[in-house]
């Protein structure tokens, strides 16, 4: 069978969801944001909930998420997305609301908003992209930067005696009674992408069931600021980020998963 006979509309099994606009993503080559955006939009399309979905973009590389996601969105001040989402969801309890935030936004300047939205059990979804660095401002230390990891403000590596330890905010919010589903995933390999999508789907279903806050961390790369190729950065992520930020579900149906 010729290739041209395979490439026909009826044989199409995968293409970019129509809920992503045709605007070229502003992210660096190989950046995990693109996959995370797509998974979110695929879940919204598959659940057929676009007419009832409102997204919040943060300050950081994904500030322009609204240019790429073809849904109603608001852009929030740095770290305040969970407060913005709270305002929306309290007024529209039947809508689907999500925030999309990076590590600086969610785990540094927005820590209070994150913790309290989680603790109140606000019925929305937080998508947390953790790449261990401030991407947009040019690679400064993030609250999640690993011990010894170099950044433009820790050029000799993060010294935990001076800078403190990286914060595992996902484990932290999992301890709060208001969170119902907490999971940590990655999007660098096909198997991970499939699991991450399942986690995002579960998160939105938790909203549908009005069970409380659903929180999905995606451990991701920042090859530009890590100063690596995309392939190298994903390998470095597996070797260095995953031991500190282990992949998998942390809390399901309001119950913490026991780990060794």
């Amino acid at each position: 069978m010729e290739i041209k006979d395979i490439i026909k509309e009826e044989n199409l099994v995968y293409s970019k969801t129509k809920l992503l606009t045709d605007t070229t993503l502003t992210y660096c080559p190989g950046c995990g944001h693109g996959v995370a955006h797509r998974l979110l939009m695929e879940v919204i399309e598959e659940m057929n909930i676009r007419e009832d979905t409102i997204g919040i973009s943060p300050v950081g590389c994904s500030v322009f998420a609204y240019d790429f996601m073809d849904i109603d969105m608001a852009q929030a001040a740095h770290g305040r997305a969970p407060a913005v989402a709270t305002g929306i969801k309290r007024c529209w309890p039947d809508k689907f609301v999500f925030t999309y935030q990076g590590d600086g936004d969610l785990a540094a300047i927005g820590t209070a908003e994150t913790i309290h939205a989680c603790n109140r059990g606000e019925n929305f979804t937080i998508i947390f992209i953790n790449n261990g660095i401030y991407g947009m401002t040019g690679g400064q230390m993030a609250p999640t930067t690993l011990p010894g990891m170099k950044s433009s403000t820790t050029p000799f590596g993060r010294d935990v005696s001076l800078m403190g330890n990286p914060i595992k905010i996902t484990e932290l919010v999992a301890q709060l009674p208001g969170t119902y589903f907490v999971s940590r995933q990655a999007v660098h390999k096909p198997a991970n992408v499939r699991k991450a999508k399942k986690a995002i789907r579960t998160a939105f279903e938790v909203q549908q069931q009005k069970k409380g806050l659903s929180f999905v961390e995606i451990v991701s790369n920042c090859n530009s600021n890590w100063k690596m190729t995309p392939i190298q950065s994903n390998q470095w992520m597996e070797e260095n980020m995953f031991p500190y930020y282990p992949i998998g579900d942390i809390k399901i149906e309001g119950k913490l998963i026991k780990t060794n």
């Binding site: 006979d5 992503l20 995990g32 992408v193």
Partner: peptide
């Protein structure tokens, strides 16, 4: 084989996959 792996890891969503 049309397994879709390339398309689902592509950050920019530039790959379409066909399978028969």
């Amino acid at each position: 084989t049309g397994c879709e792996n390339c398309a689902i890891v592509c950050p920019d969503g530039v790959i379409s996959v066909y399978r028969v």
